[in-house]
Computed example of a mutant assay.
Amino acid sequence: MKAKRHLTGKLAAVFAAATLTLFSGQPAESATADDAKLTIHGAGATFPQPLYQRWIQEYEKTHPETRFTYAGLGSGAGVQGFLAGSIDFGASDAAMNDAELARVDPERGVVMLPMTAGMVVLAYNIPDVPTGLRLPRDVYLDLFAGRIRDWDHPRIRDANPDLDLPHKAVVTVVRRDSSGTTFAFTNHLAAVDPDWADKGPGVGKLVDWPGIAMAVPGNEGVAQRVKITDGAIGFMAYEFAQRLGLPVATLQNKSGTFVAPGPRTGQAALASVTDIPADLRIYLPDPEGADAYPIVSYTWLLLSQRYADPAVAGALKGAITWGLDQGQPIAEEMGYIPLPEVMIGKAKEALARVR
């Protein structure tokens, strides 16, 4: 058995530049010091990227015999890399759809495991409005539909009578890469107004945004762009806004309550779904409940059900079991939503099918 594993095609070049410096926990010049280690390669969603990086660092402290790398390239790249067999595991904030599942090599099979959940927030940069922005459902939909173009629009003023909103153009910041965060956000907007799906941009990992939108890659890219752009508002995973200290809007949920993102409101959203399907594909486009934050998504790892190398299967199962157990408090600490106990149990049952 060869412990050293190799990647092919376009992803290989990206891994060479990204994983050694960002995700291995080692500087690039020393990352290949121990070529005898079994190396497990993963790629995909940027939404859980900070968490997976932290998990890798913590897990390798007690399991130095295996090295894990993870490149945050977007959910679409994670699915495509998994389907191509160029990575050992993929990651996506949108579980594989039926068309993608039909492309899986039947000799390999696929197991999709939710590992954590998170909130998609609307972070903004409005001069003299550092906190306190409230956005009704129809208002934030129309902001990203390009129908509300100024921050002192009457509908925004009506929802925020105590704020001194400037006459400044709205700059929407969106993703230009294939993104599970985009899927979660557009899936929610379609639940708020079916016309978003039927007559508007639609639901997907990559959509054509109406109006003048500034498109950048990755959650980190959106957060950085909002931070430096006056009048900007962008959708991103909660932890990226937290890290940069960006203010986030309080959003109106399905029950009409205005709720801020946080552990309690995120967990209330997850608790609104009790019927878990066998394939663990759960979407929460518009959670029920007065306390539920409205834009919440699970994020999945994509594993082969049968690996050619049993050492790879064993290493992955050990690390993922650790993530489902010891990794959940770390997720909460970093601003993610820990998995409900029932989901952890279901994920472990699915993981047992990996060979």
Rank of each mutant, 00 (worst) to 15 (best):
V192M: 03
N253S: 12
E239L: 03
E288A: 14
L244Q: 10
T172S: 01
A223L: 12
Y293C: 05
R176S: 15
V216K: 04
R264L: 10
K205E: 13
D198P: 03
L284G: 07
A271Q: 12
G200F: 02
P287K: 06
V203A: 05
K199M: 04
L280K: 12
A169K: 14
N253M: 13
T257V: 08
D193I: 11
D193R: 10
A278D: 15
V203Y: 02
G231H: 13
F235K: 07
A223H: 04
P247V: 05
A232I: 12
L165N: 12
A190K: 11
L244G: 00
D291Q: 14
V248L: 01
T182K: 04
K254G: 08
P194L: 10
G180T: 13
D193P: 06
V216C: 00
E220M: 09
L270P: 10
K227Q: 14
A292G: 10
Q267H: 11
W209G: 06
G200P: 01
M214G: 03
R176I: 11
L270F: 04
V222Y: 00
G180Q: 06
G180H: 06
D275G: 00
P277W: 07
R176P: 00
F235M: 00
P166E: 08
P294M: 09
P287I: 07
A260K: 15
P261K: 05
P287Q: 02
V207T: 08
V203K: 04
V222Q: 01
G180Y: 02
A269M: 09
F185C: 01
L165S: 09
R281P: 03
H188W: 05
R264W: 02
T257C: 05
T229D: 01
P217V: 01
A241T: 09
G262R: 04
R175P: 02
H167D: 11
L251W: 14
P210W: 11
W209N: 13
P247D: 07
D198V: 02
